[in-house]
Computed example of a mutant assay.
Amino acid sequence: MNVEHEVQLLIEEIKRLGRPGSDGKVEVSFGTLFTDDRCANIFEALVGTLRAAKRKKIVTYEGELLLQGVHDEVPIRLLKDD
């Protein structure tokens, strides 16, 4: 799969699993994305897809590298959904 396609799939999954935050932007925790069965089947490298989306300013989250367990509560906010 190409990166653009995976980022589009990521947007769809964040919208499916997330909830609007106080500013109206959809957000989901890293742990929710990481442990979701559908996401596990779609993304071979979820962290890599998240990093690519962050570089393109489609999502934002604190830190550079997210690790399961340690960063499960880190919110991932969707900045663009197109």
Rank of each mutant, 00 (worst) to 15 (best):
Q8P: 03
N41V: 05
E44D: 14
Y61N: 05
V26E: 05
G63R: 08
G69Q: 06
R19K: 15
M1P: 06
E6Y: 04
T35N: 15
L67I: 11
N41E: 11
V74T: 15
E4N: 13
E62F: 06
V74W: 06
G21T: 03
F30G: 05
G69E: 11
P20G: 04
I11P: 01
V28S: 07
F30R: 10
V7E: 08
V47F: 00
D81V: 09
D82T: 11
I42Y: 00
E4R: 15
K56W: 09
I76P: 00
T60P: 01
L65Q: 12
L10W: 00
L17A: 09
C39L: 06
N2G: 13
H5A: 13
R51A: 12
L65V: 13
V47T: 11
I14A: 04
T35E: 12
R16D: 08
D81L: 12
D72I: 05
K57W: 07
D23V: 04
E12A: 11
L17Y: 08
I76D: 01
L65G: 03
A52N: 06
E73C: 05
G48M: 01
V7W: 02
P20C: 04
D82Q: 12
L9R: 13
L46W: 01
F30V: 06
S29I: 01
R77P: 00
V47E: 10
K56S: 14
